[in-house]
Amino acid sequence: MRQALWTHPIHLVVGLTLWSAWFVTMYGGLSVACAVAPPAPEQGPLTLLNAGLALLTLVTAAFLAWLGWKCFHASRQENVRAAHFCALVSSGLYVASIVAVLFVGMPVLGLPPCV
């Protein structure tokens, strides 16, 4: 049963759905923060806002990594071909989601938030 949890085809879409949710939060959070309480442009990229976005990015990436590892692990033990296939492709998609989170989150390190 625990095995079936990690080989379920829903994992094909969970990783990138989380990526989308993360993406919307980043963009929405940034826009709202800049509309409500923009940090001074002189501060450059070293603001609380950037730090918060960076933290969110890391936490999301770590969570995706955990999910991906679980799926990968499950795929190795799965004998049913269809389920094995789903789990393996899902773990790949989790890796893609991690790459997407880190790559899209990267500019937080170098750009001022609201200019």
């Binding site: 442009p41 002189e42 500019p107 170098g110 750009l111 200019v115």
Partner: peptide, 11 residues
């Protein structure tokens, strides 16, 4: 990305 820096109205 830095190629656009000069066009930003930073103080």
């Amino acid at each position: 990305v830095p190629a656009g820096q000069r066009m930003l109205p930073v103080p």
